[in-house]
Lab assay of single mutants.
Amino acid sequence: MEQATVKWFNAEKGFGFIERENGDDVFVHFSAIQGDGFKSLDEGQAVTFDVEEGQRGPQAANVQKA
């Protein structure tokens, strides 16, 4: 698992990007966020996640709020 920071997340559209420590951004979809209830992330929030290869490149999976 990697630890990184949420760059931005649009709760209405259900997706955003996580900024990795190496500077690369990773796409995150609300369905990858672990937990119950409304799944959203806040800008600047610390998260841990795995990286999977998606249809359009790397994307976050198993996202957990740190």
Results as ranks from 00 to 15, higher is better:
Met1Glu: 10
Met1Leu: 12
Met1Phe: 12
Glu2Phe: 15
Glu2Val: 12
Glu2Pro: 09
Glu2Lys: 10
Ala4Met: 04
Ala4Pro: 03
Ala4Phe: 05
Ala4Cys: 08
Ala4Gly: 15
Ala4Lys: 04
Thr5Cys: 14
Val6Ser: 00
Val6Arg: 00
Lys7Thr: 01
Lys7Ser: 05
Lys7Trp: 00
Lys7Ala: 03
Trp8Ser: 02
Trp8Leu: 00
Trp8His: 02
Trp8Ile: 03
Phe9Tyr: 10
Phe9Trp: 15
Asn10Arg: 03
Asn10Leu: 04
Asn10His: 07
Asn10Gly: 04
Asn10Trp: 08
Ala11Cys: 15
Ala11Trp: 10
Ala11Leu: 09
Ala11His: 13
Ala11Asp: 09
Ala11Met: 10
Glu12Lys: 14
Glu12Arg: 12
Lys13Met: 12
Lys13Ser: 07
Lys13Phe: 11
Lys13Ile: 10
Gly14Pro: 01
Gly14Glu: 02
Gly14Ile: 03
Phe15Val: 05
Phe15Met: 05
Gly16His: 01
Gly16Gln: 03
Gly16Lys: 00
Gly16Met: 03
Phe17Cys: 08
Glu19Pro: 00
Glu19Met: 15
Glu19Lys: 15
Glu19Ile: 15
Glu19Trp: 12
Arg20Thr: 08
Arg20Ala: 05
Arg20Ile: 08
Arg20Asp: 06
Glu21Asp: 11
Glu21Gly: 10
Glu21His: 12
Asn22Trp: 10
Gly23Glu: 08
Asp24Gly: 11
Asp24Val: 13
Asp24Ile: 13
Asp25Glu: 11
Asp25His: 13
Asp25Gly: 06
Val26Pro: 02
Val26Lys: 01
Val26Ile: 13
Phe27Asn: 02
Phe27Pro: 00
Phe27Gln: 01
Val28His: 02
Val28Ile: 08
His29Gly: 02
His29Phe: 08
Phe30Tyr: 13
Ser31Cys: 09
Ser31Pro: 05
Ser31Ile: 05
Ala32Tyr: 05
Ala32Glu: 06
Ala32Trp: 02
Ala32Val: 07
Ile33Ser: 02
Ile33Cys: 06
Gln34Asn: 11
Gln34Phe: 11
Gln34Ser: 11
Gln34Leu: 14
Gln34His: 10
Gln34Thr: 11
Gln34Lys: 11
Gln34Tyr: 09
Gly35Glu: 10
Asp36Tyr: 10
Asp36Glu: 13
Asp36Ser: 12
Gly37Lys: 05
Gly37Ser: 06
Gly37Leu: 06
Phe38Met: 07
Phe38Leu: 07
Phe38Tyr: 11
Phe38Asp: 07
Lys39Phe: 06
Lys39Thr: 06
Lys39Val: 07
Lys39Leu: 10
Ser40His: 12
Leu41Trp: 03
Leu41Ser: 01
Leu41Pro: 02
Asp42Lys: 15
Asp42Ser: 15
Asp42His: 15
Asp42Arg: 15
Asp42Gln: 15
Asp42Tyr: 15
Asp42Ile: 15
Asp42Gly: 10
Asp42Glu: 14
Glu43Gly: 13
Glu43Cys: 15
Glu43Ala: 15
Glu43Ile: 14
Gly44Leu: 02
Gly44Met: 03
Gly44Ala: 04
Gly44Phe: 05
Gly44Arg: 06
Gly44Pro: 00
Gln45Ile: 09
Gln45Glu: 14
Gln45Arg: 04
Ala46Ile: 15
Ala46Asn: 10
Val47Pro: 03
Val47Met: 02
Val47Arg: 01
Val47Asp: 02
Val47Ile: 08
Thr48Ser: 10
Phe49Ser: 03
Asp50Thr: 15
Asp50His: 14
Asp50Gln: 14
Asp50Val: 15
Asp50Leu: 13
Asp50Ile: 15
Val51Asp: 02
Val51Met: 11
Val51Lys: 05
Val51Cys: 08
Glu52His: 11
Glu52Lys: 10
Glu52Tyr: 13
Glu52Cys: 14
Glu52Gly: 07
Glu53Asp: 11
Glu53Thr: 11
Glu53Ala: 10
Gly54Gln: 05
Gly54His: 07
Gly54Arg: 08
Gly54Ala: 07
Gly54Glu: 03
Gln55Ala: 13
Gln55Asn: 11
Gln55Cys: 15
Gln55Glu: 13
Arg56Asn: 11
Arg56Ala: 09
Arg56Lys: 12
Gly57Asp: 01
Gly57His: 05
Gly57Thr: 03
Gly57Ser: 06
Pro58Tyr: 08
Pro58Gly: 04
Gln59Ala: 07
Ala60Cys: 00
Ala60Phe: 02
Ala61Ile: 13
Ala61Arg: 13
Ala61Tyr: 08
Ala61Asn: 08
Asn62Val: 04
Val63Trp: 00
Val63Gln: 01
Val63His: 02
Val63Phe: 00
Gln64His: 12
Gln64Val: 12
Gln64Cys: 08
Gln64Lys: 12
Lys65Phe: 10
Lys65Trp: 08
Ala66Met: 15
Ala66His: 12
Ala66Glu: 10
